[in-house]
């Protein structure tokens, strides 16, 4: 029974957050669009079978959008519609795992550095400076080339590239929070360092972390795309938005839809995620509670 009550308290809180989220029309629109994309991801095979993405039909190559091929066909005569839909899971999976993975690793390091400071801080941050001194794409290229090109290694390489910026952001947030009087007050009340980090620092940093993480998802999708283009990311013939975009470059004059459609897919996804993140930040911030 006690557990029930605790659960219901959490539900009340969630409902409250949801109510505030819904008041923000733009965020709600972003959420709805994103949910549609997630539906497409989940029901990809129902909408159009996967075989369609790989079946070449040379007689149909570079057909503009028509009833049979809603988004037209590419240079091998494959259905762009099918490829766009089956690329969505890949792109979104990369975007989310890389963003949250680097938030987890970089965030932990950054908050620890900012809060504890001293020699530990110096050591970690100098190491991360070293990583960020290398151009991100070069680092990813080298890592994927060494580990072997596939999606798992692509994700690892991108996470490594993103850790430094996340750590630096979290460190600066943690630094400013640890100077706050309420942290001192919590210490004076007998709180341990871990408790202060999890109960005071992380919740106060949450709005910055959420917005930065969601913003980075679209960037990650793009960098995954560029790696796919040089053959180090998702391997053809597996469909991937970035790879499709890049493949279409040479046919841009005759068949612009080949570039426009994957571009729109990336655009709509990242805008909806950003709008959603913005609304989520506002909904989670009690200072804006009305």
């Amino acid at each position: 029974m006690k557990k029930n009550r605790r659960q219901s308290r959490a539900i009340v809180r969630l409902k409250e957050i949801w109510r505030r989220f819904c008041k923000n029309r733009i965020a709600l629109a972003g959420f709805i669009v994103f949910m549609c994309i997630m539906m497409v991801v989940v029901f990809a095979d129902v909408i159009v079978p996967y075989e369609m993405t790989e079946k070449p039909s040379p007689q149909d190559r570079l057909t503009p959008p028509c009833a049979e091929h809603p988004f037209g066909t590419d240079e091998f005569g494959r259905s762009v519609f099918a490829r766009i839909i089956h690329a969505a899971p890949n792109s979104l999976f990369i975007g989310f795992t890389v963003s949250f993975g680097s938030l987890l690793v970089g965030g932990t390091l950054g908050i620890a550095c900012g809060y504890f400071g001293g020699r530990f801080d110096n050591l970690i941050m100098r190491f991360l400076d070293m990583i960020s001194a290398l151009p991100g794409s070069l680092l990813a290229i080298v890592m994927v080339a060494v580990l072997g090109p596939n999606m798992r290694n692509l994700i690892i390489a991108l996470i490594v590239g993103h850790i430094a910026s996340f750590a630096r952001m979290c460190r600066s947030v943690a630094l400013s929070i640890s100077e706050q009087e309420y942290v001192k007050a919590a210490k004076a009340g007998g709180s341990s360092d871990l408790r202060i980090i999890f109960r005071h620092a992380v919740p106060n940093a949450a709005s910055t972390l959420i917005i930065n993480t969601t913003m980075s998802i679209s960037g990650v999708i793009l960098s995954a795309c560029s790696l796919s283009f040089i053959g180090l990311g998702v391997q053809p013939p597996k469909p991937e938005w970035g790879a499709m975009l890049n493949d279409a470059r040479q046919y841009f004059n005759g068949s612009p839809y080949l570039m426009v459609i994957p571009g729109l897919a990336i655009l709509i996804t990242s805008i909806s995620i950003n709008m959603m993140g913005d609304g989520l930040r506002d909904a989670l911030d009690p200072k804006l509670k009305s």
């Binding site: 007050a185 004076a188 106060n204 911030d285």
Partner: peptide
């Protein structure tokens, strides 16, 4: 930690900043 808050407690100068806003 036992002493802080248990035996000795402190009231800070500025109530605006000594409460955690979230």
């Amino acid at each position: 930690r036992q002493m802080r808050g248990g035996q000795i407690a402190m009231i800070f100068q500025d109530p605006m900043t000594s409460l955690n806003p979230v």
